[in-house]
Nucleic acid binder design. Structure first.
Lengths: 201, 201
DNA sequence: GCCGGGGCATGACACATGTCATGGCCGGCT
DNA sequence: AGCCGGCCATGACATGTGTCATGCCCCGGC
């Protein structure tokens, strides 16, 4: 029997996935958690062969949880199962030593199939997604630019960002301008959106 | 047997929900669709007692689909099952004659339970959500303001919005300014975010 | 009929934002 | 050592945005 840990914040979806997996004769869900920061503890208690992690979760996100789990129990294979196939997510997942990356709109039979392949030592990545991740490359933003762009989320004004980061307003403008150019956007709002989509933050 | 139609765009989630429902002896999933604009056709072909609709879907969204389905087959009860419990969604759902509104992070057993109650003629609404919907009232935005604010999504510049809606730039600025005041935001970015959260779009 | 209120539309003005040129600092290279 | 290139930081300037006062039109109340 393949022992599976399931981490997903939406209870209904989590239990539905468990129901789906219960149809497989060789798979058994041995633990379910709804928060990223419970993953490692649950894994140590239940000793799964495979951990199935969502990315959007309260506590810590699935990618961070993946890195921690990898450190705590390297023998556990990790499968990321998420809504958004953002290339940046895929890149971070790969860096965290994840074995597979699935998006939730692939057909349901892929799930069991992927779990088995991962346990056999394979890596399973959607080819389209992999191509997209390679195509847009790594982030061209400097650390400081990331800081500033990140702080400009939720519609903060420049003065507030400057105060928050102990910078002159002119400097903040400069970084944002740089971000706008590098993303090819028309203003900081769009720059933020594009950078997030590409996983540049 | 209760005949259920399942509409949800993410294939894996859709089939997982079907698996979940298959454990119920008195429930049968008679149709599955992945797009909002296929709901009515599938309902007419399969004659379900209950339609379970997600909101975020390609084609037309679940709330619009609900309204159409209600017109085409008023005898079919409608349950909205969605990720975001935005009060605005709930309000629109009620206006569309929906029987129940569930969020995906409620426990899985609620699903079957809700389907049965709805068929018995009950309306099932999360009390917290209902309270929130009443608390923030209806949208104070005029139709034109909604148009303009909506067009300003994805970081378009004022000139572009003006061109798109055949307005003077000054007029666009004026509407946006009005939106900013009514939402209590500091700029149009934040106004957009707040209005979306409250379902004012 | 005649207001009065509200939505729609506009342009002038003040201010916030984006662009540019510049300089200091550090690390790699010749 | 000296040079070069990249990141960090700044202020001056042009442009884009938000606010305001104003007028038009339509509809409902008096």
């Amino acid at each position: 029997m393949i022992r599976v840990l399931l981490a997903e914040d939406q209870a209904m979806i989590r239990e539905a996935l468990a129901a789906l997996l219960s149809f497989e004769d060789d798979i058994e869900v041995v633990a379910q958690v709804g928060r990223g920061d419970e993953v490692v503890r649950a894994a140590e208690a239940s000793g799964p062969d495979v951990a199935l992690l969502d990315i959007e979760m309260p506590g810590i996100d699935g990618l961070t949880a993946a890195a921690e789990l990898r450190r705590a129990r390297p023998q556990t294979k990790i499968v990321i199962l998420t809504t958004f196939g953002r290339p940046g997510f895929l890149r971070r997942a790969m860096e965290s030593g994840v074995s597979a990356f699935l998006v939730k709109d692939s057909p349901a039979d892929k799930l069991a199939c992927t779990i088995r392949r991962v346990l056999a030592g394979d890596r399973v990545i959607d080819p389209d997604l992999a191509a997209a991740a390679l195509a847009e490359g790594i982030s061209p933003l400097t650390p400081r630019e990331r800081d500033v762009l990140g702080a400009s989320a939720d519609g903060a004004t420049i003065a507030q960002i400057a105060q928050e980061l102990y910078l002159s307003e002119g400097t903040v403008r400069n970084y944002l301008s740089s971000c706008i150019q590098k993303t090819g956007a028309r203003n900081r709002t769009e720059a933020l959106r594009l950078a997030e989509e590409r996983g540049w933050l």
